[in-house]
Every structure is written in structure tokens, then in C-alpha cells.
Design a protein around this nucleic acid. Structure first.
Lengths: 337, 337
DNA sequence: GTTCCTGGCGAAAACGGTTTCGTAAATAAA
DNA sequence: TTTATTTACGAAACCGTTTTCGCCAGGAAC
């Protein structure tokens, strides 16, 4: 609207737009007094530079994109907080996109980024994503892409993850230690790196402890809570029901509690449960839940920091590193005796 | 980088950039065949228009800002989902900003928007916000601002809220009905409209039921969980301890459960509890929690929809309306007998 | 007195689209 | 045949900022 522009400032001060622009950017070509005058007027008129004009000319947008499957999960909420805190520090803006676990949507979103809308991308891939060519394409345009949490194995770039394999191992080992003889592993995806790593850790733990494992112990759930409830209930109704459960995804937790309640199975007496979750309410569940919590906030912060070091360089080059921030096991009564 | 621009398309097709631009925008000035040719090449070369060039000239950014106090709360997570779903439908991009409940930060963020970075704003004000001049300023620039959930009373614009007063009333009335004689109201802010409305509803219910109320029954908590825990524990240690508690903010819930546990007070026998929360785990708490749940997703969607109807108009004028989407009471054992 | 810097500034060309206006050719109306 | 209108396109201005050059004055070096 009636926005003050550089042109207006220039006219007011009898200067050229070039000089005003330089003064505002603190160029050495401009004398100290002139800078003072410009700054003073800019402040007085509440001049806010048009970011798009600047972006167009300088070919940087001071904006990053965060691409997530969903934000209903407490992990991603915390991650956003971490990302935003770093971005704000650096004067960057944060665009957020949700894929709703759809590969097609993820592709479309990424494709848009070829236009220069963002300087860098933080992404946690959708559950459907197996091919990473869409990511390679934008990376090829010189836009740094940092993966966090849910990564793509087949592309060499920066990643910030947690120790999913070890956590899966720890979770299973903990249940074994607590006396479980038959441990079920609940998952919602077979393609996702994190799910697989957790599962591999689980398998390794069973193997190391000489426990036999049937394929039936790995249970694939979906996105629908009711459906998941049925699946888990069926699992617990079996003659050969598990005496230990690993919920490798936060949203499967409630279904386990409910199914146990309905079947009058007691946690931890009949079934011991450990969940991968960041829910702040784990402590007040009935019984309090043993958890593997991911360092969500830290992961967000770190991923953003990694991205910004790349953006700090002239070539935007990303160090091809994998930062691992460990998850932590918190033992509570759901696995106690 | 090696981005294809209109200029490149034009050269390739022996057309002027003007014609290519018009063809891409489906102008009637361009013949059908030419349009086809342009579209075909654009697709083939994966042309993605530079959004900032377009924004600069057209003075619209196809971007909205969402300003939130925090996203660690399940309410705001769901709201973001709602907002994003509508924005995506309309082809808008979503910038997210967190104030961390700081008024200064909120002011700084809003001030930035005078530059034309966004076409519209969705905001849920910080707990510190009492003055709304910073919001009026950007509204005066012709940028529509829609409040959701946490509104500013002293500015006439569009608002999407839930029925906080009624919910406060319902919560208190429910506890009264369940036999509570002394009901404490836990809050984290006295300035926030939603907190006040909930509290007024609570007061009205007490009055209507001829219950006396001491000022001590309204307990102000803070942002620090440990601090809140101490406050609530002290409340429950009193000789005159409440037999009913309304937690008007989600994050106060856990503290109540923990304090009760530590003091070996049983919910609901000794203390009945009702919480304002969207936590999906309410059902599996010990005991299951009676809740007032806000329609977070719906509120986000509606707020976005209201904003977009304004953006659809040529003058961006916002209908000065207050949309109320009711919260729902879900009775569970934490208030049962 | 030249020549050479150097400090401080302005003119103008970008950046990549959009939009206004002009115009040539084709068609319609007179 | 002449005039009006429509169709399809191009030239150029424009959005607001940045950046490259070029220029001039004044001081230093010779």
C-alpha cells in the first residue's frame, strides 16, 4: 500500500536510490554521516525493505522450507520448535509443507523449490517415498537438502538422525531382561528407514539373546486408529500372544493400552509395553509408560544448524555427514514387574 | 542455477517474453495453438516460474503467515494441519512464526509483514499481548488479519474462536453435578481472552449454583512445569483443598496427576479433574481424563477459509465476524465416582 | 604542474516476471 | 473500396532492490 520504498527515502534525502541502498547495507562507499541520515529517516518512516525485490536481485530468499509428513505427532511439533528457533536466530523465514504421507504431494512440493523460493530444505520423507530422484533434482539445482529423522538411504547428503537401530535393540533387550519370551514389534511402514532400523535392532537383540522369532511377531499397522486397534486386539487374542510389545510409532501406543484394557490384560503383568514416543503424558498413563524418546527438539535444531552452515558457504556445499543424536530409554512401570 | 526462465522459453519458441507470459497465464490475447506450444515446452523444460519476480510485479505473494505462541501444544499442531490443508488447496504457501509468548517478538514479526512478504495473517496472540497497535498497523496496510483461538478484544476484525465462556461454565457445572463443593480453576494467564472467558464461565456456573467462591480458588500457574507442579501440590496440601479441579490449559494436566499421586490423593475419589486439552492420550490416562476438547483442526481450517475469502476480494476486505466453533465435553472417569 | 589514488556518490543495468500499449494483419461492416 | 473491428503478438515500462561502473573532487606522490 502506502509502503515506503528506497525511492521515497532517496527523494526525501536528495540522494540516489543507489546510495540509500548502500547506506542501508552499510557499504564502505558511503560516508558515515550519510549513513546516519539514511538510517534515521528509515527508522522514522518505518522502512521495511521489500523482501521479494531483494530476493529477486540477490538470488537468495532468506527462507527455508520444512517438509514434513504430518505435524499431529509430538515429534514433529518439537522438531519445528527447534528448527524455528535456529532460523529465527539467523534471520531466516520458515515455510512449512505437509505431505500427509503422500509421495505425489512430496514430489510436487519439491518441484516447486526449483524456482528459487527457498535457499534450503529440511525434509523428513513421507512413508511412501522410496525413490529419491525428486530430491536429487532440487539438490542438483544447488539447493542444499538436509534430511532429518526419516531419511532417504540412496542419496548422499547431510542427515540428522537418531540411533534407531540401537534404540530398537535397547527396547527389545530391555523387554528380554524383564523376562519377556515373545516380543511383538509394531510398525506402520516397511519402507521407512527409521522403521527398518528399529526393526533390525529388535531382530539383532533377539538373535543375540538366542530367542527365536516368528514372522508373525512383526505386525504392520496402518494410519487408521480403529484399524490399528483391531489389528492389535487380534494380536493379543491369539493363543500365542506376545508377552512384550514394542510400539515403534507413537500413535500405536493408545491402541495397545485400549486393547489390553478391553481384553482385561494387565500391563505389565500380562503384557509389557515399550513405546517410541515423545508424549509428555507418558508418565501419567496407566501404568506409566516405558519410552524411547527421540531428541526431537535437538534434531530440529541440529538439522537447521547443518543447513545454515551450508548456506553460509559461497557454494552452498553441504558436508555429507550423518549426525546421530541418541534417543533415551526411560524405564517406567509398563515394563516393570 | 540453470533455471529455465520465460526468456529462455521465448527464445526457444521465437516468441516474445510477453507472449510467453500471457500464454502461461492463459490470456485471451494468445491463440490456442501458441498456448499449446508454450505449455508443451514449459512442461518439457520443467519450467517453474520465479515466485519472487511474480510477487514483485503483481504485488501478491501467494503466501500467508501463521503466528503462534508455540507449537509444542497439541492444539496448535492440529490447527497447523487445518490451516495447511486449506492453504494447499488454494495454492498458498505458509510461513510459520513462533512468538514463544513474547510480545516483543510478536511485534517484530508483525512489523516485518508491512513489507508485503505475506498477503494475509493468521494469529493467535502471545500471553503477553495486551496492546494491539502492532496488529492494527499491519491491518492498516491492507493486510487482512484473522485471529484464531487467542484473540485481541480491542480490534475489530475476523475471529475464529471456540465457546470458551460456555466451556468454562460446562466444566464447572459438570464438577458441581458430580458433587464437588470446592472447585479450583487453574490458569496460566490473566490477560489472555480465552483464559478470562473460561474463568468467567466458571465463575458464572458457581454463582448460578449458589456456590461460594474464594479468590484462592483461582490459581495462576506459569510456564515452567516444575514450578507448576509445586504450585498445584501446595494447593492440594492445604487443609481446605479443592475436591474439583479445572485445568484450563493442557500443560497443567500432568502436574495435577503427579501431585495427586505424590500426595496419595485418588482421582476422582478425592479430587475430580477436568482438563481443557486435545491430547489423544486422555483416554488412556489413569484414570481416563474428562476433557473439554477444542475443535483445533476445524478452527485452523475455518480461520484459513475466512482469510481466503478476504483475499479473494479485490479490496482484501475482511468481514468483521466472530465464528464460534463449540468445544465438546467428553466425560470420563476422572470426574466419575 | 602533472599523474595517481581514493572516497563518496549517481546512472543505469540487472533480477524475472507482468501489464500496458501499440501495431500489423485479417476480418467485418459500411 | 474504404473504414471499423478484432485477433495475435511484441516493445517497453514496471515492481523495488542490488550492484557494477563511471565520474568528479580533493589529496598525495612525482
Amino acid at each position: 500500500m502506502g509502503n515506503t520504498t528506497i525511492k521515497i527515502l532517496a527523494k526525501e534525502l536528495n540522494l540516489s536510490v543507489a546510495s540509500v541502498s548502500k547506506a542501508l547495507r552499510d557499504s564502505h562507499e558511503i560516508s558515515h554521516e550519510t549513513k546516519q541520515k539514511v538510517l534515521a529517516l528509515a527508522r522514522k518512516m518505518n522502512y521495511v525493505p521489500n523482501p521479494y525485490a531483494s530476493s529477486l536481485r540477490r538470488r537468495v530468499s532468506k527462507t527455508i522450507a520444512v517438509v514434513l509428513p504430518e505435524v499431529a505427532d509430538s515429534f514433529f511439533s518439537l522438531a519445528i520448535n527447534g528448527i524455528e528457533s535456529i532460523a529465527e536466530e539467523r534471520g531466516y523465514h520458515v515455510l512449512i509443507y505437509l505431505t500427509h504421507e503422500s509421495f505425489a504431494r512430496e514430489k510436487a512440493i519439491l518441484n516447486e523449490f526449483k524456482s528459487g523460493r527457498v535457499d534450503g530444505i529440511l525434509i523428513s520423507v513421507s512413508g511412501e517415498t522410496c525413490d529419491s530422484s525428486h530430491i536429487k533434482e532440487v539438490a542438483a539445482e544447488g539447493i542444499p537438502v538436509v534430511f532429518f529423522d526419516r531419511i532417504c538411504e540412496d542419496i548422499e547428503t547431510a542427515r540428522v538422525v537418531t540411533d534407531d537401530f540401537e534404540s530398537g535393540y535397547v527396547a527389545a533387550a530391555h523387554l528380554i531382561e524383564k523376562g519377556c519370551k515373545k516380543i511383538a514389534f509394531l510398525s506402520t511402514s516397511t519402507s521407512l528407514s527409521i522403521s527398518n532400523n528399529r526393526m533390525q535392532g529388535y531382530k539383532k537383540a533377539l538373535k543375540d539373546h538366542k530367542m527365536k522369532m516368528s514372522g508373525h511377531d512383526i505386525v504392520l499397522c496402518g494410519n487408521d486408529p480403529d484399524e490399528n486397534y483391531r489389528i492389535i486386539k487380534n494380536l493379543l487374542k491369539k493363543k500365542q500372544r506376545p508377552d512384550g510389545i514394542i510400539a515403534s510409532v507413537e500413535k500405536l501406543t493408545a491402541a495397545v493400552y485400549l486393547a489390553c484394557k478391553d481384553l482385561t490384560l494387565t500391563i505389565p503383568k500380562n503384557v509389557k509395553l515399550i513405546s517410541f514416543t515423545n508424549l509428555p503424558t507418558a508418565l501419567i498413563l496407566n501404568p506409566p509408560l516405558t519410552t524411547i524418546t527421540q531428541p526431537a527438539f535437538e534434531m530440529g535444531k541440529t538439522a537447521a544448524a547443518v543447513l545454515f552452515t551450508a548456506l553460509g558457504k559461497s557454494n552452498n556445499e553441504l558436508k555429507e555427514e550423518t549426525v546421530v543424536i541418541p534417543s533415551t530409554l526411560t524405564v517406567r512401570s509398563s515394563t516393570g514387574c
